[in-house]
Design a protein around this nucleic acid. Structure first.
Lengths: 334, 334
DNA sequence: GTGAAAGCGCTAACAC
DNA sequence: GTGTTAGCGCTTTCAC
């Protein structure tokens, strides 16, 4: 393995000079710089990141922790962080948190051990106190998809409420009158915000969403099917169905179809997230676009900025808005 | 930041002893070991990975490079590597290669700079020579989804030919007679092997697959739609359609449906890969399961083994077999 | 059993 | 402009 010493020796300069030309800083004579560059090239020298991280007390890695990278949504998230990292010439360290607070914490620790410059954390299960403490300890920590007022500036999140308001409004505008909602059994954060958005919009338009028309289930395709079956079994009548997310929406479409109902002719269905799976079903799913990749890139840049020693604290939070993707699962009755 | 020195000082021993208790090796008195452990706990000490990598000339990271982590298939791959890494107490470094040889190489280099112990590489665009050279330089390099005879032992791959043979056989056994194939415009490796498997199986059963019944397109949903439209436009008649992958298969189902053909009543469709998207369409897709996550875990363990200094070279290659997942897109006419 | 000490490859003062 | 040098936090040989 060729080291900075080898380069220095061959080029007949000191390692300090080599270091200077590598990082393009400090003063180096033009001829000297050119020669060293050439030697580096010839020798195929590449700096050892571990050594420079150790010596410089920084690292060129950024970490991301998500529950499970194999899920489409988190794949997009990771992809965004990777892009951001690449643009900033950083390496990406990844850890799965596996949907529970204990392993989530372990994942974060493992990234810290590697001296990550910044960490993007999608935390679902750790409570706010822990996260606030963590944020205090790690300057480059940014939360994605979660808002905690005390560390507002470290949060990159989506306005779920306005998202579902837009969806509801769209259904209303296209002439729907009887609404049903299928949502997650875990009525915390996102699910509850989305339901709130629906209720408030309906309220404003003089429509009361009956509790009977809300069904909770797992937030996946199966859950969607089950929820719709339950709704139907209760004798619930509706011409518009708002699903917590795309997975549930697709399950819902299947259940509706199995029950002899046509989408969107009999029932309009709208999802949330805009996963690529939304164009695999028929009708293609109308949904709210969750700009997760864009948010992840943003979060990455933010985290890098915050990790710098001269970062200026701010009270600004970083809120994104979902927008409507119109496809074929909603009928225009207006 | 608390270092090994702090721990040593507080426990009144040398750093050598602390290092010994951390790694559970070498001889340390019981009382001493217990005390040091306690102090480590109390101080919340965590070893600095960069320092130990540097000093020990190894690292605790494993790298994975795939074209694009946001695609479902590669998400599963990465997920497998992550699992393998976690089981071995390693961190995962990730890099996207973006579908071209130049950035693929850059990605690999960036992982090497970090002293990765092992690297799992899904390479589509680099040629064999480069990969063979790379394998020579990096003991812990394992290729996934690619077979290169010269470095057979470093390849974890799938038997695409047998996979499509199984699929074809299934269609034959269920009474289909008229076959059509939609495949990728890039007829290298996987796509051509899969087509080969189909042709040979058909041949053996006295059926000739007409060139006219093979259509090439992009290997995604749109490509699947286009290919089927082209087939239909040519006046091609078929009751069984083999798609290069699930994405194309789903596109095909849509195109068939749009043309007024029912799946599977009029045409049976079979995919390949077993992406989760296969249950989002109706009928649910019958397909070949590509055990990519399992393969990735296997590859990770292999790479770790190979990276060890006393690794024994072997001529064994690591071949996996796809198996049939029967759902609803194939009709039993037998 | 335990400690001293020599690096690992690099960065960043500081000196010239 | 360029070189010297003191570490960064750790592993590992070698003494005792």
């Amino acid at each position: 393995m060729t080291t900075i010493n080898d380069v220095a020796k061959v080029s007949g300069v000191s390692i300090a000079t080599v270091s200077r030309v590598i990082h393009n800083k400090g003063k180096v004579g033009d001829a000297c710089r050119a020669r060293v560059k050439k030697i580096i090239e010839e020798l195929g020298y590449r700096p050892n990141n571990n050594a420079s991280s150790l010596a410089g007390n920084t690292s060129n890695t950024i970490g991301v922790v998500t529950p499970s990278i194999s899920m489409s949504f988190f794949g997009s998230l990771a992809s965004g962080v990777e892009k951001g990292a690449r643009e900033n010439n950083l390496k990406l360290l990844m850890a799965n948190s596996l949907y529970e607070t204990e392993s989530e914490l372990r994942a974060i620790d493992s990234l810290r051990d590697n001296n990550c410059k910044a960490i993007i954390l999608h935390s679902e299960y750790s409570d706010e106190k822990i996260l606030i403490k963590l944020a205090g300890e790690i300057p480059g920590l940014v939360l994605i998809n979660r808002f905690i007022p005390e560390i507002a500036n470290r949060c990159v999140w989506l306005d779920n409420t306005s998202g579902s308001q837009i969806a509801t409004k769209y259904l209303l505008d296209s002439g729907h009158k009887n609404f049903a909602v299928i949502t997650s059994i875990y009525q915390n954060r996102d699910p509850s915000h989305r339901v709130d958005g629906i209720k408030s919009t309906l309220d404003k338009n003089g429509i009361k969403l009956l509790e009977n028309n809300i069904e909770e289930a797992s937030s996946n395709m199966d859950g969607g099917e089950q929820a719709v079956k339950a709704l139907l079994a209760k004798g619930c009548k509706f011409d518009a169905l708002l699903a917590y997310n795309d997975l549930m929406a697709i399950g819902a479409i299947h259940a509706l179809f199995d029950a002899g109902l046509r989408v969107p002719e009999d029932v309009s269905v709208i999802g949330f997230d805009d996963l690529s799976i939304g164009i695999a079903c028929r009708p293609r799913l109308t949904t709210m676009h969750y700009p997760i990749e864009e948010m992840a890139i943003y979060a990455t840049n933010l985290a890098i900025k915050l990790s710098e020693p001269d970062a200026i604290p701010s009270k600004q939070t970083h809120l994104f808005i979902a927008d409507l993707v119109i496809r074929d699962s909603v009928k225009d009755k207006s």
